[in-house]
Computed example of a mutant assay.
Amino acid sequence: MKKLINDPRAVVDESVEGFGLAHADLVTVSADPKYVTRKDAPVAGKVGLVSGGGSGHEPLHAGFVGRGMLDAAVPGAVFTSPTPDQIIPATLAVNSGAGVVHIVKNYTGDVLNFETAAEMAQAEGVEVRTVLVNDDVAVEDSLYTAGRRGVGGTVLVEKIAGAAAERGDDLDAVAAIGDRVNQNVRTMGVALSACTVPHAGSPSFDLEDNEIEIGIGIHGEPGRHKIAMENADGITNRLLEPILSDLGTASGEKVLLFVNGMGGTPLSELYIVYRRAAQILAERGIAVERSLVGNYITSLEMQGCSVSVLRLDDEMTALWDAPVHTPALRWGV
């Protein structure tokens, strides 16, 4: 295992410390308990947005803290949910009296810990709503979740719900738009190689040199099946077909196409995948109105990618276009 780390047990602490130093103009880092807030939190009269999960998915979630997106992010250990004693103070820190929305990926630990934190925050007088993200079409159940996993669609939920909160929507309205995004986005991923969790020191699953894993999750958990390596167009076809079938897209609809790197794939290869996905959508009469390509929700150094398709309406498109200023995503400012 070759990694730019010191003590494997200190990876998250040192990474979050470095993140805070690098982006001190945008965020404030609490070391104990560990969480990240936007520099100007709490914003008066604004609904707060809090998300979090295991580390190893950077820039998710801390990279999306800032104007137009999250108010706080709570990092757990690598591929491990944050605890309620982190989530509660993060929730309280961004509450301005308008309430807080928790955006939670559908993994058992995340769901249980955010649920506990929400109950305790409400006991302290903070109104909390939860948006559960479960956009992965690959697996209905896994070791980590009951039902579909929350994967690439999380970025889109955070951006669009964040814009709704920034424009002044109330608590229920922000939660509703987050739910609407989740209901209209589907994702599927592929791994060309496994990742190595620092404290484990060995790959999270086995792949032969000529094998790939279709339908992987973001914690290195295996997917639907292993197949022989194919070219980029063949792999993209395999990812996009179940997405469009499950989403039920029809000719004339408008979508956002998101090709996400898993951490170890060159941007040039992601654009090759995007090229083929855009061709398929065009062949079906589906208009790609917005796009996003890059490493936004990763799995350490895994080689591979995920493809997400979000069915857009006018409001979601406007909220996507709204200004955002975070360490990892920014435009319009």
Rank of each mutant, 00 (worst) to 15 (best):
P323L: 04
G304N: 05
D13E: 15
R149V: 00
V43S: 10
L49C: 09
A73H: 09
V126T: 03
D246E: 15
N260T: 00
K159P: 04
H57W: 05
V185Y: 08
A200D: 14
Q279F: 05
L26T: 00
V43R: 14
V309S: 03
V157N: 08
V133L: 07
N95D: 15
K3F: 11
R238S: 14
S299Q: 06
V16S: 00
A121E: 13
V185L: 12
R186A: 02
P323G: 03
H199P: 05
G97E: 13
E253F: 02
G109L: 11
N134R: 11
A98C: 11
N184F: 07
R284C: 06
V197W: 06
N113I: 00
L292V: 08
V185R: 03
L60F: 12
T130R: 12
E208L: 08
P33N: 02
S142V: 03
T326S: 11
K39V: 10
A250D: 13
G332N: 15
A117K: 09
I177Q: 05
L267I: 14
S299D: 09
I272P: 00
G248I: 04
L319H: 07
Y271R: 07
A123R: 09
L132N: 00
S308H: 00
G76L: 08
T265I: 00
Y107T: 01
N113S: 14
W331C: 04
Y274G: 06
G168I: 06
S81W: 08
D314H: 10
A138E: 01
N134E: 15
V47W: 12
